[in-house]
Design a protein around this nucleic acid. Structure first.
Lengths: 200, 200
DNA sequence: CGCTAGGTATAACAGGGTTATGGGACACTC
DNA sequence: GAGTGTCCCATAACCCTGTTATACCTAGCG
């Protein structure tokens, strides 16, 4: 009997919020509602307030990230793939810095953590392939976590204008190489793989 | 001829703001003024608004960080010192997570960047000692930057409850070891030094 | 075809930062 | 040492934000 919620309104709100975030405009309830062609109340029926909207935006951000990482085609060199994933991850973050920041503002409580987990799983799986191929002998989960943490920190420092943009290309490959080599890979071979994967 | 601004009011405001941040209370202008025993206008005369107050708080945070790092007594093993600095840095961040977060919300524009630079300089100098001692042959600035970025990312993920607190002790030493070893140090010796430095 | 339940719009509310306004204390002048 | 001007600080209004109350009105069912 009731009128069903319009899914189009929900997606429009999330899209607009993400767009405003990218455009570096302040995401206020009224501005968002106006841009989405609706009223402020829609945010409450669909998301139960602006906190819920942020959660949906974070979810959207992790979904886009996972999609972007899934687009990285695996090769027969898993270490190269690891670096390629890092490059894709960094590209996503640098293209949408505000969205990336928002994603980690409260990344712990996502509506559907699986989506975020999917992005991370790609990393772990690639590290596992590296182990299966005999390139590394350390725990793939540990290697993936270290890659992620190090990349996250470097990206945030660049986004925050603490380090120049060039710092990413200068330091990311050496860091990836260091972690993978420490996990057991041959340093020279590892460096070559990372260089190839990072460049694309 | 005018009445000079009271420095005590200024410091009281910064201290109270930092305290409220640590106590995880929302830092509002009115609550802050009440706790500092003054009025909201004091924030404007001393800091030109709450944005300026945040800048002062960030400055305070970097000052405390620099002080804490300066307390780390150098030994004859620079790699060990590097790990000890990392441990002190992490301890500072985990003790005051909200303050650490605030520090990097806009770390690019500090009133006096030198204070923040001082904290970083300790890292660079220690890396330079490692090079002078023949432990590493890479650029000390690059090594320090990589340590910082990787540690920053790991700490933020822990603070954000994305990774468990135990992840810090699990991953920080291996990451430090990986970066320093990749810079030229002997892997086994490096691991031992880092272990010693991290434990204190 | 009417009834009803729930989404949407409008408007009032609470709390945040900022901006006027006035008083009062300090330092400088004579 | 009294006068005086300058700005620090307290009070109170303002605007904008998120939230909540209320009314409408649409969509589905008996």
């Amino acid at each position: 009997m009731p009128r069903p919620p319009d899914p189009a309104v929900r997606t429009a709100l999330v899209e607009q919020a993400a767009a405003m975030l990218v455009a570096r405009e302040p995401v206020t309830l009224r501005a968002l509602a106006t841009r989405a062609g609706t009223s402020t109340m829609a945010v409450y029926t669909h998301f139960d307030g602006i906190a819920g909207l942020w959660a949906a935006v974070r979810q959207e951000g992790f979904g886009r990230l996972a999609a972007r990482l899934a687009d990285v085609a695996p090769t027969d060199d898993p270490v190269r793939d690891l670096a390629a994933l890092g490059a894709a991850y960094a590209a996503h973050a640098l293209t949408h810095p505000a969205l990336y920041r928002a994603m980690f503002d409260a990344a712990a409580d996502l509506p559907d953590p699986e989506a975020a987990g999917a992005a991370f799983t790609v990393l772990v799986d690639t590290a596992a392939r590296a182990r299966d191929a005999g390139r590394i002998d350390a725990d793939p989960l540990a290697v993936a976590t270290r890659q992620w943490a190090a990349g996250h920190g470097l990206i945030l420092l660049v986004i925050s204008d603490v380090l120049p943009r060039a710092a990413l290309a200068e330091h990311a490959p050496p860091i990836i190489t260091a972690i993978v080599a420490a996990a057991g890979d041959d340093p020279a071979r590892c460096a070559a793989s990372v260089r190839a994967g990072w460049s694309g």
